[in-house]
Nucleic acid binder design. Structure first.
Length: 560
DNA sequence: AGTTTCGGCGCC
DNA sequence: AAAGGGCGCCGAAACT
């Protein structure tokens, strides 16, 4: 097992490295090396680098052209282990873990860095509290012991490995960036919004729509101020409680049309307009900062640029380099397939064992051919719908797929009761809503309330408890899907190694690979194979298939 | 004046 | 038809 080495930056700009034994302890002397990149490059036989934080080490390696095969991110693992142990909220830095191990005062985690539009890469900033290699390894060895002590050590090992792989992928994607044509983006903006006026006010089309709305109301109305709009409707004799689209849509008034059009375009203007372009696009690349494991469910988040919310019309500007292509791949009905795999419901597994449209198959079995109803029912079950058609359809779903529905029901009950809820691989849901906890903690009020100690009974749970139930219900599906997606990324990354192709985008169930035209077909194959492998690795032997819709395009907008 | 929360909506 | 899960982002409003 000398293929596993540890690495820690030293104060002098060099690094300490050491080979590791199977127990996680050094299997040889610690060596100080002056050049971090050379320290890695000169050891091609190392298959996994153990380090405190990928964000601390990997950017500078990538900057010198050095990639690593695998990593073990100690702070990512600490977060997962603490969660698994029901110790959410304890500081998760390696320094804190060491202090717990040695019995010293536990340092709080350093505050999260805020997003900085246009900031040059965060690549060289020191992040977190550095730790000498020998201390780091004490934490690592203890983590291996803690992993062995979990109920499913095999899954927990897979989870920490997958999360670490995600950190590598995120760092590599941050470096690559998504190919972006600023000129195309500007053309789209001009097309939608019209000319910009000097002085930074709203562009022509928005000004016109605001005029139209005001004319319809017979007085000046600012469409971007909800309170103003609600008042204007009231004066017109129409009672609305908000200006949300679904509420306004059904109102019969001439102002509605321009108002809704304004809101749609206003959103593009403020969130993905000219200033966005200025802030986030450099040298033909859109560079958000992807953060693996940024949410409790294991989904990623991005820091800046709203990369996971790019409106469809704006995707026109994501264009491959000349001679290159974007391979856009989207997992088909990922969440119900994951539900089939984790619940082992025979009927749902049978349906998910096909590559054809899952919602259509569910509909054929339980909803006499109405696909839309079937989709609504499945998503309602996963999201914890409490009323409406989805609830009615849930009964049909329950009859045909009882184990699947029972599985999410049980997760919801566990969440309401404050029990630990885990994804398939063992990522653990916070026992109560984080925001509430934080607020309570900050106010210095004890976290427990009478609600929390009240036993769960159907129909009696408090609003908060029900919200926790919905959260937990969704968590097991969304989180297990994130488990699978991480394994997919890890597998795909390995296959792409040695090709010119680069992973440039990842959004929950969708990946984009930028590659030379002649590699595109190989990339498509690699994605399908990675999906199969991820399915087997994550869920073991399962009939469930994870098909992808793939498109080889020059422009992201042409993918769907 | 600076910071936090809210409303609304984009994506999955 | 009704408003359930996860996020980020922006300007305005509501605070300190």
């Amino acid at each position: 097992m000398t293929d596993r080495w540890a690495l820690a930056p030293a104060e002098d700009g060099g690094v300490d490295v050491a080979p590791l034994g199977p127990d996680g302890l050094p299997a040889g002397p610690v060596r100080r090396e002056a050049d971090p990149a050379e320290a890695v490059r000169s050891r091609p036989g190392v298959t996994r680098w153990v380090w405190r934080s990928t964000a601390e080490v990997y950017p500078r390696l990538l900057a010198t052209g050095v990639r690593v095969e695998r990593a073990y991110d100690i702070e990512a693992a600490e977060t997962l282990l603490l969660g698994h142990e029901g110790r959410y909220g304890e500081p998760r830095s390696a320094a804190a873990a060491l202090a717990r191990l040695r019995g010293g005062p536990v340092p709080p985690d350093p505050p999260q860095r805020a997003a900085e539009p246009g900031a040059q890469s965060p690549l060289f900033e020191p992040q977190g509290i550095p730790l000498p290699l020998t201390d780091l390894l004490a934490v690592y060895a203890e983590q291996l012991r803690r992993t062995d002590a979990t109920a499913r050590p095999d899954r927990m090992r897979l989870l920490t490995a997958a999360e670490s792989a995600g950190m590598l992928v995120a760092t590599e994607m941050n470096r690559a960036g998504l190919p972006w044509r600023a000129d195309v983006h500007r053309a789209v903006l001009h097309d939608l919004l019209g000319e910009r006026y000097a002085g930074g006010g709203e562009p022509r089309r928005l000004a016109e729509l605001a005029e139209e709305g005001s004319a319809a109301f017979g007085r000046r109305v600012r469409p971007d101020l909800p309170a103003d709009v609600v008042k204007a409707f009231a004066q017109a004799g129409i009672k609305v409680t908000s200006t949300r689209r679904w509420e306004i849509e059904s109102v019969d008034h001439p102002a509605v049309k321009p108002l809704l059009e304004y809101k749609k375009l206003y959103r593009i203007w403020v969130a993905h307009g000219w200033s966005w372009l200025q802030d986030w696009v450099r040298e033909g690349r859109f560079r958000p900062e992807f953060l693996a494991g940024g949410t409790v469910t294991g989904r990623w988040v991005t820091n800046g640029g709203g990369a996971l919310q790019i409106p469809k019309v704006i995707r026109r500007a994501a264009v491959a380099d000349p001679g290159w292509r974007l391979v856009v791949a989207d997992a088909d009905q990922m969440e119900p397939r994951v539900l089939a795999a984790i619940s082992r419901d025979p009927g749902l597994m049978e349906v998910a064992g096909r590559e054809t449209d899952l919602y259509q198959s569910v509909s054929d079995r339980a909803f006499s051919g109405d696909r839309a109803q079937a989709k609504l029912a499945v998503l309602g079950a996963v999201y914890g719908q409490t009323s409406g058609d989805g609830l009615k359809n849930l009964a049909a779903l329950r009859r045909r797929f009882p184990k699947a529905v029972a599985f999410v029901d049980e997760a919801a009950r566990a969440g309401e009761e404050g029990r630990l809820v885990r994804t398939w691989l063992g990522r653990t849901c916070p026992p109560a809503a984080r925001a509430t906890d934080d607020a309570v903690e900050e106010a210095g009020i004890p976290a427990a309330s009478d609600e929390d100690s009240r036993p769960w009974t159907p129909g009696y749970a408090s609003t908060d408890a029900r919200a926790r139930g919905r959260f937990a219900r969704n968590f097991v599906v969304q989180g297990s899907a994130a488990d699978w997606a991480l394994l997919l990324l890890a597998a795909l990354r390995q296959t792409l190694n040695g090709m010119a192709a680069e992973l440039v985008f990842f959004q929950h169930d969708e990946v984009i690979v930028h590659c030379p035209e002649e590699e595109a077909e190989a990339v498509v194959t690699a994605i399908r194979e990675a999906a199969d492998l991820a399915g087997r690795l994550t869920f073991g032997e399962t009939p469930v298939r994870f098909p992808f819709t793939t498109a080889v395009v020059e422009c992201y907008a042409d993918a769907k």
